[in-house]
Design a protein around this nucleic acid. Structure first.
Lengths: 151, 151
DNA sequence: CGAATGTCAGCTCAACTGATATCT
DNA sequence: CAGATATCAGTTGAGCTGACATTC
């Protein structure tokens, strides 16, 4: 069952699973009128505190011009607010509002269930193992992106 | 380094890594005028032999209407050919041409290097482990899709 | 007839590019 | 001035939906 040589490629496997993961997360977000980037931006703001737009975009491996539109959406819904940094007026600092924080909290359990659905065939120990491997690959990608951007 | 709570979600991790994987595969394909689906359809035809379009679409977790356009492209480049099944004239059987086969062979090593790039931080044993975990998750997804489509 | 297969048009989101404005 | 930050317009691919025709 499912032995095509495409599956010999981990890159293809990750691509296929990434699509499935995205689909499951989207299901849980569209009912609230949000998209994937809305969630990830809110979560990152919650983790890091108020941040410049370039930092957010870089951390999420996201295009700067796309981030502008996502933040615009979040401002309209009142989940984030923006202020110019008085020390460097080029910078726009984005911060989570209380409304954004509670919206994120409400999403938490709902979104976490996407994990259970995806990783159903694995037991707890295997999930930890997979998670640890994925994190290492992801960390290297981030490091590579940084060094590539600032050689 | 990179500890946001978004990363507690394996679903998000897979999504992010899937994007990175897709990007690496695309780099290697656009130089030849191909896209991701072109590669996967060629590879699946090589593995399974001539197949109906619905089978191809289902196996690749792909929309039937999208497959039609991908196959159209591949027919234009001469990599596949289509024939009506005389026993059931609704069916269109797609098969790989010799040109398609050699194009796929030429892609092989090039595309395999996407794996090395992605999994750079893991040693051989860890790669096997990751691959095995990913395959199990993927197999379950395919099974779920089948049972959901035919309850 | 209903159901399966394939085709076509059109839509949204994701991802990227290039041009421009503003500020340091 | 160069460089960083942000913004805006437009393009492509991916993914999905609905309508339709054809055949069994």
């Amino acid at each position: 069952m499912t032995p095509p040589s495409v599956l010999d490629l981990n890159a293809y496997l990750m691509y296929a699973l990434g699509k499935a993961a995205r689909r499951r997360l989207q299901e849980r977000l569209t009912t609230r009128g949000l998209r994937l980037w809305h969630l990830t931006v809110l979560a990152l703001l919650s983790d890091l505190g108020p941040q410049m737009k370039t930092v957010l975009a870089a951390r999420l491996d996201m295009n700067a011009s796309d981030l502008v539109r996502i933040v615009d959406d979040l401002v309209k819904t009142g989940y984030v607010e923006c202020d110019r940094d008085p020390e460097d007026r080029r910078r726009v600092v984005v911060r989570l509002t209380p409304e954004g924080g509670s919206a994120l909290a409400e999403l938490g359990a709902d979104v976490a269930s996407a994990d259970d659905e995806l990783l159903a065939p694995l037991d707890a120990e295997e999930r930890r193992l997979l998670s640890s491997l994925l994190r290492r690959v992801h960390a290297r990608l981030e490091a590579g992106a940084r060094t590539a951007a600032r050689p």
